[in-house]
Design a protein around this nucleic acid. Sequence first.
DNA 1: GTGAAAGCGCTAACAA
DNA 2: TTGTTAGCGCTTTCAC
Lengths: 338, 338
Amino acid sequence: MVNITLKELARELGVSTTLVSRVLNAPLRADGTPDCDISRDTARRVLELVDKYNYKPSRMAAGLRGGKRYMLGVITPDIANASFSATGRRIEELASADGYSIMFGSSDERPDRQLELIDHFIGQKVDGIIVTPCAGEDRSLQKVVDQGIPLVLINRNIPSLEGVGRVLQDYAGSTRAVVKHLLGNGYRRIEMISENMDVLSLKDRERSYCETMIANGLEPHIYKVESITQEIETRQAVRDALKKGTEALITPRIVLSINALLELMNAGARIPEDMAIVCHDDSPAWITHSPTITYVSQRSDDVGTLAYRLLCRMMKGELAEQIMVPPRLVLGGSTVKR
Amino acid sequence: MVNITLKELARELGVSTTLVSRVLNAPLRADGTPDCDISRDTARRVLELVDKYNYKPSRMAAGLRGGKRYMLGVITPDIANASFSATGRRIEELASADGYSIMFGSSDERPDRQLELIDHFIGQKVDGIIVTPCAGEDRSLQKVVDQGIPLVLINRNIPSLEGVGRVLQDYAGSTRAVVKHLLGNGYRRIEMISENMDVLSLKDRERSYCETMIANGLEPHIYKVESITQEIETRQAVRDALKKGTEALITPRIVLSINALLELMNAGARIPEDMAIVCHDDSPAWITHSPTITYVSQRSDDVGTLAYRLLCRMMKGELAEQIMVPPRLVLGGSTVKR
DNA sequence: GTGAAAGCGCTAACAA
DNA sequence: TTGTTAGCGCTTTCAC
């Protein structure tokens, strides 16, 4: 019941292993026949037997001798995180359709873990690597580049690295779009509830909110809540905002969104009459809620698609690019025109 | 900058490759020295040079010749699903500490996809496979067993398969515990809101709820909502329950839990005075909510730990076992004694 | 068009 | 205690 080998195939056909290997590795022509200097007839016979035995070449052996390894490495800080796993899922989907296997690893935001994983991947001689880097560890990534292994960075940038592909999100741009959307719908007293965290994406959103408000002659105001007391503070902020007559709230993290929403319901506030709200990140709750919620989607799966495609191009020898993905503003009933 | 090979190491040391290989593959003794018939001194010299060059053996080559491959395959229906990814995460964590690489795949509940992935894994000659099987495809799994590759089933059972390990959740047992907990706290009029789905875990919970109620001389009642109109129906069910004077609600799926909770808040019902509630599955919302929510944890990470450990034992030649994991009832303020 | 032969980096009999 | 030899399954010159 063990898999048949190329050698056995060759023997049964009465040809050399070389011949079989060549047929198998030739690029396919438009009409589906292999593009190599093998007689059409022999090639057909080979393919038929391959089919009959459902022969699958051993990637191990192929890789060893120097061929493609059909293996990719993917590292995220935490595969259990919804956004990262959505990205990873998409990569796996596309890659396995192309015959690649995926090795996943979670760095857990620990540089040593990331280093370990990279070493592992290099040891396995993967064809390419996609990684959401954790802070404070570019040496291992540099090593990847030095070894000539195509590398694509996702979501977080490391500017010092050269020759790597990047798929990054335009957080500032999306927040600008949010504010403009609210302004266009007649909202003026727009506030943000944000969290005191050292995360670039959040800082970008805060900064962009302030800039856009000021550029439109309005005064920005951010409630900054501490992570540890986030729920209580968020709820307090919502009550304050309601009392003050704030017209719209932007909540740039999903936990803030959820707690703000809960407090609005708790306070009996009507959305969007008493308070409009823009949430962040993807949740099935946004579209089942009534009214539906206007939110900024991270497009995690699109990021996966783009990263994989870019990696493919790089594996074919094309130059590394930087792709900016604009997060998508999904309009809902929580910010209708007033 | 490319990795050094065992052969080069051997040449630099003036010994044979065999010698080096033996040192490297020997099990470690308590004092950290390799347990083989190599002179302590030579062994030390080998290890020193390995260290100096940070040599990592090529798993490809090792695997090819018949040694361990240090590679595991993990298949879940959807790695983007929180529960599965938590399990996968834990497996990866433990496995990579032992030097294994993990190949992940999502079957997307599609038998053909599962078959493909399994073939891939067999082709890569993984040392072991952990899978949450999708319905309707046991042939590929049988193939795994036939090839002598240790296989562990997670969460879903396929009784016909022999010689496989299993880590299953005791859904009926946990629901029994839920009902008993409520009874013990003085609740009598206990109802369940469930969804009309063909999923074993849900059926188990419904059955167990009914049985336990009847066994205690109480009348069970289940609101069955359709998946497609789940939100509206769940909310309606909550309103009905409040009107009828129901004392406690069990919601055996996370979406039902969330919508029931939202409707309770919407209706201004006090928890647990007007209605106690037991939610299901893990969510950060349960512990940040006030009052905190009593819920049944799936223990996805524990399942991962147990599955990995079991697989390890099987890879060492031990017999396959079946492990039942009792889901954990986490007590919160939503079901306090009345 | 096709095949012989030499490896890729490693492990495992079998000798010494 | 150590080395010799022969592969694992495949790709790749180079020769025919």
